[in-house]
Every structure is written in C-alpha cells, then in structure tokens.
Simulated assay, not measured.
Amino acid sequence: MSGNRPTEDELRRGMTVEIDQSNADNAPDADPIRGEIRTVIDEGDSPQGVKVELKSGVTGYVERVVPE
C-alpha cells in the first residue's frame, strides 16, 4: 500500500475521493473514479488501502482525497 493513501480514520461520509474500482468487470484496467463517500467499508489492514462505497454505488479502494 502506498504511504500516501489516506487511513480509515481520515475518511468520512460525504468526502470526495478518488478510488480504484473493485466491482467493475474491467477493474484492473479502469481509470480512477471520483465521488462522495456513502460508506467506509472496514477492510482492516488491507494492502490495497481503505475500501469505500460511493454514493453512486461503486466500490473501491481510496487512492486520495480530492481537495475541495
């Protein structure tokens, strides 16, 4: 996991983030998606980072928080 990825403690519902998709057929090749966090999904110490569900229903691992 990249040391620059936010931790679970830094993420809150409603924050805008950029994620790597985890529920798309082409997830490994897909571009990152931006959206607002609906739910932080507890992944423990996943090497991919913190998994979230966006308001759009897409789930994935947070790459970064998007500045407002």
Rank of each mutant, 00 (worst) to 15 (best):
S46M: 07
P47D: 04
V66N: 08
E63D: 13
Y61P: 03
D29Y: 15
P32C: 05
T7C: 02
S56L: 03
P6K: 01
E63F: 02
N23V: 04
Q48D: 13
D42M: 02
G57F: 07
M15A: 10
Q48V: 01
E8P: 00
V17Y: 07
E36F: 04
V50Y: 01
V50C: 05
E18G: 05
L54G: 01
D42S: 13
R34E: 15
R38S: 15
R5I: 08
N4Y: 08
S2M: 10
R64L: 02
V66T: 05
M15D: 15
T59W: 01
N26A: 11
R13S: 12
R13G: 09
Q21G: 11
P32R: 07
D42C: 02
S2A: 09
R64T: 11
A24V: 04
R12A: 12
E18S: 14
D25I: 14
E43W: 11
D45E: 13
K51N: 09
R38T: 01
V17I: 13
N4K: 12
S46N: 14
R12M: 08
D42L: 07
D20S: 09
D31P: 12
A24E: 11
E68H: 08
D31M: 15
T7N: 10
V58K: 09
E63H: 05
V17Q: 06
V50I: 10
P6W: 02
E10G: 02
V50D: 05
E53M: 15
I33E: 15
M15T: 06
T39W: 11
T16S: 12
E43D: 14
E43L: 09
G60S: 06
R64E: 13
G3F: 10
M1I: 06
Q21T: 12
A24C: 04
R5Y: 04
R34A: 14
K55H: 06
P47G: 00
T39D: 15
G3P: 05
N23M: 03
A24D: 06
K55A: 06
D9V: 05
R12T: 04
D31Y: 10
E18C: 08
G44Y: 01
L11W: 09
G44M: 07
V17D: 04
I41V: 14
D42H: 14
T39G: 00
E10F: 04
T16Y: 03
D29S: 14
T7Q: 13
E63W: 04
T39F: 12
D45I: 02
R34Y: 08
G3H: 10
V58E: 12
V52C: 06
E8H: 11
N23A: 07
E53S: 12
K55V: 12
K51C: 11
R5D: 06
M1Q: 07
I37T: 10
T7F: 06
Q21E: 09
E10C: 02
I33Q: 14
Q21D: 08
M1K: 06
S22A: 14
E68Y: 05
V65Y: 00
R5L: 08
R34I: 13
M1F: 08
V65A: 04
G60V: 01
D31N: 15
S2W: 02
P28R: 07
L54I: 03
E36Y: 05
A27M: 03
N23G: 10
M1A: 11
R64F: 00
S46W: 07
I37N: 12
Q48R: 13
E43A: 14
T7E: 13
S22E: 12
E53N: 03
M1V: 06
R13L: 03
G3I: 06
D20M: 08
R38I: 00
